[in-house]
């Protein structure tokens, strides 16, 4: 836990944290991470390859390549904070 870098984690998660929040969250997360350390003592014979993502080990079902109508253009943009000429608009994404 000594190398817990809250700034890097916040950057990966794309959340702007104030200095105060950084301090508070570092403390909270340290407590939780210490608790989950309980797992490190666990002897595990299970290979990761044997793990299924679905808890009931269901297999993925593939679907037919047939079009289904869905959102209208208007509905798709109905919640857009900003849009222009039928496109969503955001501040520049290239620096």
């Amino acid at each position: 836990m000594s190398d817990f870098d809250i700034k890097n984690i916040a950057k990966l998660a794309s959340i702007n944290l104030s200095a105060e929040e950084q301090k508070k969250l570092t403390k909270d997360l340290s407590i939780i991470l210490e608790h989950v350390q309980a797992l490190s003592s666990l002897e595990l014979d299970t290979n990761i390859e044997d793990v299924f993502i679905h808890p009931l080990e269901k297999e993925l079902k593939l679907v037919e390549d047939i079009e289904i109508d869905s959102l209208t253009h208007k509905d798709a943009l109905s919640n857009a904070p900003e849009s222009k000429d039928g496109k969503f608009v955001v501040p520049p994404s290239m620096e």
């Binding site: 794309s14 959340i15 857009a80 904070p81 969503f88 501040p91 994404s93």
Partner: peptide
């Protein structure tokens, strides 16, 4: 939840700043 297509948006100079501010 990033302020691009729906929901809250808190502005920023770039998209990345906007997303970080929105999520904060």
């Amino acid at each position: 939840f990033d302020g691009v297509r729906y929901g809250l948006r808190v502005e920023g100079k770039t998209s990345y700043e906007m997303m970080q501010n929105t999520r904060a």
